[in-house]
Write a protein that binds this DNA or RNA. Structure first.
Lengths: 191, 191
DNA sequence: GTCCTCGTAGATCGATCGCTCTAGCGATAG
DNA sequence: CTATCGCTAGAGCGATCGATCTACGAGGAC
């Protein structure tokens, strides 16, 4: 019984989130995880690519938990959307603009260079969309409208993260949040 | 008289756009630019970081030209917004999901690791916002509303690029475009 | 006890990284 | 002509890359 494998995945996920795939070395991962070098290739015979893909899926499933955590206690759907963006802004600010989306950097990086990694990112995005969908349909929206709103929400969040991290300013997150909250309110009114 | 310097910047911009900063090697740049290795450090004594920052600013100013190119011939503001997103979707599809935003990948990568590069990305985003502003104020919107819409537009575009590149599907761009077009129309109606 | 398996541990591989260095070419100035 | 200067050209630096390899220790099966 050992938790070395978990430590490696956790450390990889953290490093990938902050510096991306290419800039993260295998040696840096084992140092950060306090694991022996050989264990990497014992647990991940596919090497860096396999480890990266697993770390992305791990990050994705953790981040997905934010959806019920934020949406369930909210009084209504629009408040939940708003809380989602303000929570993201707070966390970004608290970590000095380090912790934004755990997979976006890698998703852009590997899109044209590593098909297994690209697929892992695509699967994570799809799982987020699937997780968000029932929150919008439960409020009475059609499947189509709900899906469009969820995709718009994730896209607006990701784009606002890009601007916020580059400009060191969470204003984009507030604007994007209000935009999606307003669009959600309008969709509910037109119901 | 020589154009080696331009070739180096152009090649760097192209490679940074597709694979990011860390994955792009200096040797790969000189090979792609058909330039001698030593010329890199002749023109860019600051090394890879200086070259990267200049390539980002170069990409940024080229991409900024898209704003007048798309907005000026459009019949009205909402049509221009729509054309901006459909044009981006077409170009992304035509290049097999390689050419999305020329700086977003790098912006996320370097945000926590290289301050000069991060500043270059921030400057580019600021210049895009400044270039987009007059198009919205000219339609009669207040400075504040215009600025929020421009930031929302860029954020939605960037986020849709992330989803589109990862999932190999331009649907997110269409959804994001309609979202911003509708928000723009609403702002004009409430004027 | 003897195996056998799983996981630890790290030395070491060839390749590549960003970068420095020197040598030499070609055009212009005196 | 020679001298100078901008630029080309690439060999080679130490460091680090991802990956492979062997050796060893702990614990269970028999």
């Amino acid at each position: 019984m050992s938790n070395t494998r978990e430590r490696i995945v956790d450390a990889s996920a953290e490093l990938l989130r902050r510096q991306g795939y290419a800039a993260t070395g295998v040696k840096q991962i084992v140092t950060s995880a306090q694991a022996p070098f050989g264990s990497i290739y014992h647990f991940f015979p596919g090497g860096k690519e396999q480890l990266g893909a697993e770390a992305i899926r791990h990050s994705g499933s953790l981040y997905e938990l934010l959806i019920p955590a934020v949406f369930d206690p909210a009084p209504d759907l629009v408040a939940a959307v708003r809380a989602f963006f303000t929570g993201a802004a707070e966390h970004l600010w608290e970590t000095d603009y380090a912790d934004a989306c755990p997979i976006a950097t890698v998703a852009l990086e590997v899109s044209s260079t590593s098909e297994p990694m690209r697929e892992a990112c695509a699967d994570v995005f799809e799982s987020w969309i699937s997780a968000g969908l029932p929150r919008f349909t439960a409020a009475g929206l059609s499947d189509e409208t709900a899906r469009e709103l969820v995709i718009a929400m994730i896209a607006a969040l990701e784009g606002a993260f890009v601007l916020a991290r580059a400009c060191r300013d969470v204003a984009a997150l507030a604007i994007a949040g209000e935009l999606i909250a307003a669009a959600t309110q309008r969709a509910l009114d037109e119901r």
